[in-house]
Amino acid sequence: MAKNYVTTTINGEQTEFLCETQQTLLDVLRDVIGLTGSKEGCASGDCGACSVIMNGRLVCSCLVLGVEAEGATITTIEGIAQGDKLHPVQQKFLEHAALQCGFCTPGLIVASKALLDENPNPTETEARYWLAGNLCRCTGYDKIIRAVMDAAAELRGESVG
């Protein structure tokens, strides 16, 4: 069986790749294209470490076939910062020490950005439920939620710090 030829847009760049049908978008990102920022924690959609934004929607890249990326627009963790300027979510994760080991962090940052794109003024409860698909075993989520709320405030122009 021939591999599938796929043309897609990843982090603003048109990208072509070949993949076998059973390869997931996560397999393609990590093993074919070399974008290893998206992590495999479970390969079953339960941990969120592979979160990417595909055609404007937050998805687990382990639950998308690579071949489904044909014609899609995909943002991965590598595309969240603009050049050397961190996205406010990234900056607030650093300031609030919202990471320990850092393995879940890429997925959480992508998911948090997707949240704030859709809901600029989430309540703490909304943020917690939105991020419930992103497991973090290190932090107890406290500082992550604070970072997300603070990033939201900054994006709304309300941040004092």
């Binding site: 959609g45 969120g48 595909m54 929607r57 998805v59 687990c60 639950l63 998911a111 939105w130 698909g133």
Partner: peptide
């Protein structure tokens, strides 16, 4: 059904 990520699909 599932997480926000699952809801996207």
């Amino acid at each position: 059904i599932g997480s926000t990520q699952i809801q996207g699909r």
